[in-house]
Write a protein that binds this DNA or RNA. Structure first.
Length: 554
RNA sequence: UGGGGCGUGGCCAAGUGGUUAAGGCAUCGGGUUUUGAUCCCGACAUUCGGAGGUUCGAAUCCUCCCGCCCCAGCCA
């Protein structure tokens, strides 16, 4: 945290007031994902908010799966979600909860509503129900089944539950107000028939509760005090409250809405991310180009970077689009502070040092981090032949020292953590391509300043040719070429960036990288941040998390 | 269109009637540097969607207008 206090957001203000007034004794929040896809960066904001609030007020935060629709849900997703929340570093209170654990209670409450003439089994089909619902400007009409006897509804609901009624033929509806200006209040559906197995309750049920008939009650059962959701649920709040008021629930949670996170050049819609996976536009949910938490993790983004970013976000009711650069800032900031340094040459160019003995080898100690001694150092081998990056050499000797701080014939450059060298001669192959550079070292310049009269143009990275290990490097660019691929009437698939992945083979990494661990972050000096990919078939591959900032206006 | 929500610099945003409208990102200058990184210093809204009004005083209160988002799934 910086010296300036972070502003108190509106939800914190509400909770503080509730505690002060005695309304709330212990704060309980929850993160309630539906297991119908993988978590993405937008969910991270919600996770940080809910767990963060519980922590701030010494309360509890539950992890609860809102598994009310077996059609779209799967245990693969629950496992992935659990792993992602753990990865972010949050601990939920007690056992993991499931809406499906409360199905019996929901059913009992539905019966109570029927008995009090506040719900009825309706036999309108989907099409008819739409017609009866009215429009934004016209009131709806009462269903012809609205006033059927409670006993009849009870019996029909029993049959729906037993599986003897066809899907779509009947629903259980709340009896509220078909003329309400809020369409959510026009006799919403409580139960619909889905004669299919649920990933947790198996064949036990043929009817499943709708979101509105489940969420608030789940909160009430768990004693959630502040139920925080995104803005699009604002119109559902009166309905949320209606159930809390009309059911014999044990506690009275309150719903509050905040603006979800939107990031440019990507999408945060589970449905659309699933489409990218299903249609093969990306490898999988954890493709490093995906804004999913598993994708970011595989890309090399640290959990603390995600958390720092989320904590920097405003919790308010505005729905804006955060610039990807803001997220990238937190990714770089964390990696710069914590990633070990190493060297890797992406486009190798052979350099032979003509004044260095052929069999000689020196081991130089190089700091793992320029500002953090606690990270120690590593040993790097130095020999007569080494690789530098092709981009670090230019045949244009007219380039000024300010304009090109790299290697040029006749001039000097510092090899990072090693000697200053001078380029002497270009060796070409039969078609004229540069094959090799002949160069010479300036003696006694390791860990020492250049002698009088010699000034290195700059510092470049390198790797000993004999000691380096081959590796593949995956370079990523934004998944979409359009800042808002999803807005208006755009088809997001048309804006996929065809160059979002570039695979570079034959890269040369310093020997210490040979046993890099998956999940460990590195900075390849002068290139960017990388981490080893654990899913590839090649022996050694690194994903580029993000490049270094480059202020060079060349 | 009925209802609900929101408009503060390129982006995010604090501000809850009274010093020169915080801060972050981005951008632009300059310094340090064995990473063109990091770090450091400096610049960057006479004005808060617009127009009126209340007030000694308004981004904050009132009125009208404009714009954007959400709701018409047996999705969540």
């Amino acid at each position: 945290m910086t010296d300036t206090a972070k502003p108190i957001n509106f939800i914190q203000q509400i909770i503080s007031a509730d505690i002060e007034s005695g309304k709330t004794h212990k704060v309980v929040t929850r993160f309630p994902p539906e297991p119908n896809g993988y978590l993405h960066i937008g969910h991270a904001k919600s996770i940080c908010l809910n767990f963060g609030l519980a922590e701030l007020f010494n309360g509890d935060c539950h992890l609860r799966f809102d598994d009310t629709n077996p059609e779209k849900e799967d245990t693969e997703y629950v496992q992935a979600i659990i792993e992602d929340v753990r990865w972010l570093g949050f601990l939920w209170q007690g056992e993991i909860r499931y809406a499906s654990d409360y199905f019996d209670q929901f059913y009992q409450w539905a019966c109570d509503l029927i008995d009090h003439q506040k719900a009825y089994v309706c036999e309108l089909n989907a099409q008819q129900m739409r017609e009866y619902r009215g429009t934004l400007t016209e009131a709806g009409k009462d269903s012809p089944y609205r006033n059927r006897p409670a006993a009849e509804s009870r019996a029909l609901l029993e049959q729906m539950k037993a599986g003897s009624i066809a899907e779509g033929a009947m629903t259980l509806r709340a009896k509220i107000d078909m003329a309400s200006a809020n369409i959510n209040m026009r006799d919403p559906v409580l139960y619909r028939i889905k004669r299919m197995a649920h990933h947790r309750t198996g064949d036990q049920w043929n009817i499943y509760p709708a979101y509105d008939f489940a969420h608030g009650q789940e909160d009430a059962i768990e004693g959630v005090t502040h139920s925080i959701c995104t803005l699009e649920f604002t119109a559902n709040r009166p309905l949320y409250n209606w159930f809390i008021e009309n059911l014999a629930v044990p506690t009275t949670p309150q719903q509050y809405e905040f603006g979800r996170l939107n990031l440019n050049y990507t999408i945060t819609s589970k449905r659309k991310l699933k489409q990218l996976v299903d249609e093969g536009h990306v490898d999988a949910w954890d493709d490093p180009r995906m804004p999913t938490l598993s994708g970011l993790r595989r890309r090399g983004v640290s959990a603390s970077a995600v958390r720092n970013f989320c904590d920097s976000l405003a919790v308010a009711k505005t729905d804006g689009v955060v610039d990807m650069a803001q997220f990238e800032h937190f990714i770089r900031d964390d990696l710069n502070n914590n990633a070990r340094r190493a060297m890797c040459v992406l486009k190798p160019l052979l350099v032979t040092l003509t004044n260095y003995e052929q069999d000689k080898v020196e081991q130089f100690a190089a700091a793992a981090h320029p500002q953090r001694d606690d990270l120690g150092e590593r040993s790097i081998a130095f020999r007569q032949q080494l690789y530098i990056d092709r981009n670090d050499f230019s045949e244009d000797t007219g380039l000024s020292r300010k304009k090109f701080k790299r290697l040029v014939i006749g001039d000097y450059v510092r090899l990072r953590s090693a000697y200053i060298i001078r380029a002497d001669q270009v060796v070409r192959d039969s078609v004229g391509e540069i094959q090799e550079i002949k160069a010479s070292i300036v003696p006694n310049t390791v860990g020492a300043d250049a002698p009088e009269g010699i000034r290195a143009r700059g510092v470049i990275h390198w790797v000993s040719a004999l000691d380096a290990v081959d590796c593949t490097i995956n370079l990523y660019d934004r998944l979409f070429a359009e800042a808002q691929p999803d807005s208006g009437d755009k088809n997001f698939l048309e804006h996929l960036n065809p160059a979002s992945l570039k695979v570079i083979q034959g890269c040369k990494a310093e020997a210490s990288l040979d046993n890099a661990e998956v999940g460990e972050h590195y900075q390849f000096e002068r290139e960017g941040y990388f981490c080893r990919d654990g899913k590839v078939s090649v022996r050694l591959a690194f994903n580029c998390t993000i490049g270094l900032r480059d202020n060079w206006k060349g």
